[in-house]
Design a protein around this nucleic acid. Sequence first.
DNA 1: AATATTACTTTGACAGGTATAGTAATACGT
DNA 2: ACGTATTACTATACCTGTCAAAGTAATATT
Lengths: 109, 109
Amino acid sequence: MISSDIIRGHLDAIILRLIYEKDRYGYEMSKEISRRTDNQFQIKEASLYAVFQRLEKKGIIESYLGGVSYGGKRRYYRITSLGKAYFKEQIAEWEETKKIIDIFMEVLE
Amino acid sequence: MISSDIIRGHLDAIILRLIYEKDRYGYEMSKEISRRTDNQFQIKEASLYAVFQRLEKKGIIESYLGGVSYGGKRRYYRITSLGKAYFKEQIAEWEETKKIIDIFMEVLE
DNA sequence: AATATTACTTTGACAGGTATAGTAATACGT
DNA sequence: ACGTATTACTATACCTGTCAAAGTAATATT
């Protein structure tokens, strides 16, 4: 299991990536993240919805109510054009970050 | 420049790496981080000393006062054996983290 | 009818990082 | 001799992202 301090700052990008592929709702994304990481990382519910609020306020994603099925009414999220640009920046930043941290993580001796 | 949220959680490891190589004092490490990253990442002074306090409290590093030269008295830090083990864990965790985030950062289409 | 699962929301707390300010000693230019 | 820059560390208050905990509500399963 990956600690939250290490993953911190990457949740926005992870969520965005999933919404970039297609419109999705929260619970679905939570399950999809666990699936794709073989349960090595599970996003906590509270974090998930905090990300939605943050990104929606910034105009990076938009939401709309979808159908009700087996439980509460689903709120779907869609990425905006601003969001697409933002995600591409995040990818670039991630590549930079990897390089920088790798400088200090190379094996000693 | 890398954002603080992205780097968050990696400061401990960066500092530890430098102390692992040899005993060092704060200001020196600050400069060394800037140098090794070509100024792409500069650790803030307050963050630096916060890391020292945290790591020393956990027994991961130890400190002693060194000579005075061109400014205040230097406080040197040395890694403990606990610290060496901790750093190796951090490396392993970083490798895992990279894999996980890369899953979501692969280029689309 | 009771329980499990799906689905979302809110609140409060915590921890890491930073801005800001301050102390103090030494070197350098004029 | 004096002012400024640089080296070096410390303390305080604040911001932000993440999460624990608790709650609401609808549908499916037994």
